[in-house]
Design a protein around this nucleic acid. Structure first.
Lengths: 339, 339
DNA sequence: CAGGTTGATGTAACTAGTTACATGTGTCAA
DNA sequence: TTGACACATGTAACTAGTTACATCAACCTG
């Protein structure tokens, strides 16, 4: 009933008409206000306001060839390690005027490929993925579209895609070596599902490759506090009691700590316990958790910088290995009890 | 040196030329393959492959008027409550063919407004924000662009924006009532920075509004495990020892649990401890944490559905209040020690 | 006062798709 | 045999911006 206006979104031409100028002038008011005389500028700005004109991002993107966002594919948001990684990504990308679209894969290569397709369909300028092994469709997709894509959490100089991550095998070895040096011989290794997870696989094969004369037993569980807590029961079921528990991720180690507390088993007096990741919670837990620090925040920063440079200047980055280091805290100690 | 091709990305016209068909036919192969004869279709598909043609998302968006992504503004990714919320959002939006762009605000209204602007600039079809109070610029931006925007984590039927969340005051009252019923009188209330955080403010005023004849003392700390752990020292510094500690978020409560453990104070025997949120970790902790369940996953789902409907069919949703409920676990108990 | 420069603005051709409408061919029934 | 219709395809006009180039007036310099 308002008589005039409404209908739908105003465009540049509508504004130009209302302000009695050309479309070029309106565009200038938006992108180079100094090139327009104050009088005209004001008239155009008034028209913009009254028409509630909002420039179309798509129309801009079509001209610039840039959508100003990239996608990240991570297994889950429920593990703090990925949440922290995304936080770092988002922060650094923001400094390069890039936004971050988040997609979770649930560690399913099929879902990963589907979501990657979706990200490309909406115009992602680049992708950040977790790990180096993916489905054939995924690899074909990246190859076909030549989309800038960086693998993370896994360093592999031989990969076609640039990788920015750590040496997972070495990280696991650091942990195991620490336990061995403390005199532990019988060690329970707790890990998440290895299938489809190259990081876990690399950590496990790192352990296998290290011959320290230890007696390792493996326990697979869900990567969550609950999974870590529940696995304690299995570990202490019938098997000979281990000297130490090595969890291949900190969430699981934290869960295991709770599991031990629930059964009245004390770390490190009864068993040493350690993880890999170094989450903030690990430092706060009681006892504070010995772990291997993986620089996720740094990784997010480096990956974001590399991708930003890649999409802006077509400079494909090289792979980068980030250091993993032992963080000794209170949950591990020298073996005291006699065998 | 390859002689032909290269230079830059192929477009529809290039493909049409190569396949010796019109642009319309190429477009049909992409969007309605059945409308094209198999022979022609194959020819076009071959051209698409050899030219590595990838349709421009921007050009599509300009025609459809849809970019197929929305933005979410959350304070941080470091608190599991928001990570879980985003996970639910992403999942449900995905079912509606919408992607999720994540932006963190660090609880700073200025950053929030800037990032909201950024999301609009790249073409977000809608926004999901945390809380109802925002900067003037933010409100002006939403008003001006008329962008579908939903507030979450805070139910307020009177808000201009639709809100999908819980009654924060009531949630805090549920917690306090529980502690009162257990016979606790002296209660330490631990909360994050209230400034700029309407959820915290609402919870605090909920507590103030409830007159149960209790003796409340307030402690402000950082919303993190570290913050929760550190605040324990303040609580037990000079003040009379409290009967119970009520943390207005579970991360802080978890941190406080560690803080207590570190000082050899047992929950619930020495003090009852409870939180609000109901994170997965709260159920696994030892003792398991009594808390008030806030349905974040449900909230994410409902917000995503409402926004998806809004952007697709211009149906603005109404506000929705989600129930908060007490979850009694092991960290709270009847006051035993005589006063 | 002619000629050059600067500044402000407009025209129209781009960017890369979609799609309404027109056209042409082939099949089938009357 | 011819009209009716389906099917396949093409033409050109859309979508909403940016921008190279042209134009014109005003100002300054020689």
């Amino acid at each position: 009933m308002a008589g005039t206006q409404d209908k739908k979104r105003a465009n540049l031409r509508d504004v130009a008409k209302a302000a009695e100028v050309s479309v070029a002038t309106v565009s200038r008011v938006l992108n180079a206000p100094d090139a327009v005389s104050p009088k005209t500028r004001e008239r155009v700005e008034a028209a913009i306001r009254t028409l509630r004109f909002v420039p179309s991002a798509a129309a801009r993107a079509i001209n610039s060839g840039r959508t100003r966002f990239v996608g990240a594919l991570v297994p889950t948001l429920d593990n703090a390690i990925f949440a922290r990684f995304l936080a770092a990504l988002e922060k650094t990308l923001g400094a390069h005027q890039l936004s971050l679209v988040v997609a979770t894969t649930e560690t399913d290569p099929g879902i990963e490929a589907t979501k990657a397709k979706g990200l490309i369909d909406i115009g992602a300028e680049g992708l950040i993925v977790t790990g180096v092994s993916h489905s054939a469709e995924f690899h074909a997709l990246i190859e076909r579209t030549m989309l800038p894509t960086i693998s993370t959490s896994y360093y592999d100089a031989a990969s076609q895609m640039p990788t920015i991550g750590y040496d997972n095998a070495a990280a696991a070895q650091i942990a195991l070596t620490h336990l061995a040096e403390l005199g532990h011989r019988r060690i329970a290794v707790v890990h998440g599902p290895a299938r489809g997870n190259d990081r876990t696989q690399a950590r496990l094969s790192g352990l296998r490759a290290l011959d320290l004369g230890l007696e390792l037993s493996r326990f697979e569980t869900e990567i969550s506090l609950r999974g870590g807590s529940a696995v304690v029961e299995d570990i202490f079921a019938d098997n000979p009691r281990p000297d130490a528990i090595l969890c291949l991720s900190d969430v699981v180690a934290l869960g295991a700590l709770f599991g031990l507390q629930g059964r009245g088993i004390a770390a490190p007096n009864d068993v040493s316990l350690m993880g890999i990741d170094d989450l903030p919670s690990s430092a706060v837990a009681v006892p504070a958790l010995t772990t291997v620090h993986l620089p996720v925040t740094r990784m997010g920063k480096r990956a974001a910088e590399a991708l930003a440079r890649w999409v802006a200047h077509q400079e494909a980055p090289g792979s980068e290995r980030l250091p993993a280091s032992l963080v000794k805290r209170a949950s591990t100690a020298k073996r005291m009890a006699p065998r």
